[in-house]
Design a protein around this nucleic acid. Sequence first.
DNA 1: GCGGGTTTGTGACAAAAGTTACACAGCAGG
DNA 2: CCTGCTGTGTAACTTTTGTCACAAACCCGC
Lengths: 217, 217
Amino acid sequence: MGIMIQHSGVQQLLESHFGQFEPELISKLAEHCVIRDFEADQQLMRPGQYFKSTMLIVEGGVKIYREDQDGNEFFMYQLGAGDACALSMICATRKEQSQISAKAIEPSKALLVPIALMDELMTGYKTWYYFVLETYRSRFEELLEVVDNIAFKSMDERIEFYLKNQRKLSHSDELALTHQQIATDMNSSREVVSRLLKKMEQRGMVRLGRNTITVLF
Amino acid sequence: MGIMIQHSGVQQLLESHFGQFEPELISKLAEHCVIRDFEADQQLMRPGQYFKSTMLIVEGGVKIYREDQDGNEFFMYQLGAGDACALSMICATRKEQSQISAKAIEPSKALLVPIALMDELMTGYKTWYYFVLETYRSRFEELLEVVDNIAFKSMDERIEFYLKNQRKLSHSDELALTHQQIATDMNSSREVVSRLLKKMEQRGMVRLGRNTITVLF
DNA sequence: GCGGGTTTGTGACAAAAGTTACACAGCAGG
DNA sequence: CCTGCTGTGTAACTTTTGTCACAAACCCGC
């Protein structure tokens, strides 16, 4: 009975954010997969961890980071409900180690799809197949955009891009961010970020407050 | 008759570098795809171009670049015989614009697989399906490594990585490179590269000559 | 061997980013 | 209201990277 309730919950979550999936696929997923809850700031995966399943975000938001040997982290992109982690799909299919770290930015739910199921889903369900391809494509493009930013742009342009991104994701011009958080995400230092933000304020691009940055552009 | 000869040539090239493909897949590809030749330094694709087909490299070597608006280019990774461009697969499936530029570094041959064929190949041939997934995975990982380099490492470490890479690809410790080429690939300037290479020579890591860098580490 | 190209070496300087050090403002809890 | 913590502002300095200017070395064809 507990399982039945669980399954119908899965079904409902899938229907609301993965409406493109055919009904049989949704049933299949509801039958074989589980939902896992994450608190804000909790890690969904850490570097060096092995994947046993692919994750689809069904609620909340997740930030994806790249980490180096010294534990520095570099923010790459963010996932929301309806997105999937390409890495967990790719690595999952090869039982590879994760090279990235993922952190929930708010209370979130993810659907765990066992890797054992992947082949069957890919060959049996057209909408799943397209979903996976589309996931690869969009993650790849996001990653290319990340390369653009750090390869061609200076710090102030990168901050601007970062803020635009955050605004889009939070659907608000008031961002609840500290300078330190931004610096950490960009693998820079707080002083540099403060300095550049101050210049942006003087140019009328943002308004700065404690824990808040209001985007004006 | 000319077509017959063409087809058997395709078949042979496929067999030598894509031995994992099942015979029926090779025949299928030989039947529906064509080989295209590229001279050294010729562009396989340029930014803004639309894909009509996916490319498999069957001979030679290709460098993949990201370009910005001002025409600066940033080298990301290199493909050899047996590799495929993930971008051309991903974009091909959506008839998207290319975001990258690809340049042959030596006389090369590529197999052009029409995008119209992709779905049929993916669903009908297991080895093709695995090949595509593996292509996505390895390009994605290469891209992550690129991010690592520019996000975490300093110029001298990046040069070191670049040289190691080139050594692996050319199967030789003697690299035929000018400082200017390296600088262009890394979106830096020739003077900086010269300076750092000189330091590396003093530390005994390389030996420098005109048009050649001998890797000693 | 003599120009004229390309490639490399180097010094001086400028700009960008990172570091150190410290002051101070804002807020929360006692 | 005081205390202490967190977040921000800022000056001074170092390091790294990029730019400018020019010299020297090398290579090739004549």
